[in-house]
Amino acid sequence: MASRDFWDGARRGVPIVLSASPFGALFGALAIDNGFSIVDALFMSATVFAGASQMVGLELFGHAVQPWLIVLSVFAVNFRHVLYSASMARHIAHFSLVQKAAALFLLTDPQYAETEKRGERGEPVTFVWYMGLGLAIYLPWLVATALGAVFGGLIGDPKAIGLDVMLPIYFMALVLGFRRRDHWLPVVAVSSVVSVIAMRLVGSPWHVSIGALAGVVLAACLPVKSGETAR
């Protein structure tokens, strides 16, 4: 039953929306703060639809970083989706090409996690179920962005209401979220230290690419552990 599948998927989206909406609103508020208009913020949420990379993008744009580096940074932060879509491919193999194109546009961390779980349980990952979940995440993301942007337009100095610490803490939360991955600690340590040194010696925004590259190269050079834990 198609409509039941849709609402089944949409219901799965409820806790995701509850935890993601503050970040959507945060993005909206910070976007205004970094010189975005409300339309700019909504446009980015609607087309990029990837919270962490949106934060990175607006942060770099606020620092007047070269456009190609902003795009590259967004690409780098979102690179994990390559692994998601590779590992999810078997669950959506029966979708048509157009359905795949639409479904993959809505691919996010929770979307991936829920789809993998459903596939593992042996329940059918139907297109309708997938879109029910995906739209239940996508549409509230836009609403949260708009609310944050409207509110952000009314507040003055972000420092006065403590908004300036939110971004680094949010990114730290994401870093901690990956802590069960192989070589997490050495990668974080090396990227952190190298980025601080690079910020001093070379300056922003190069510290991002230089620090990230150091961690990634380290991970490629360390002995490969058996047994995949990183999913």
Binding site: E59, L167, P168, L174, V175, R179, R181, H207, A212, V216
Partner: peptide, 10 residues
């Protein structure tokens, strides 16, 4: 390692 490496630099 990409996400942890990139985000640590922020």
């Amino acid at each position: 390692a990409v996400p942890a490496a990139v985000l640590s630099t922020l």
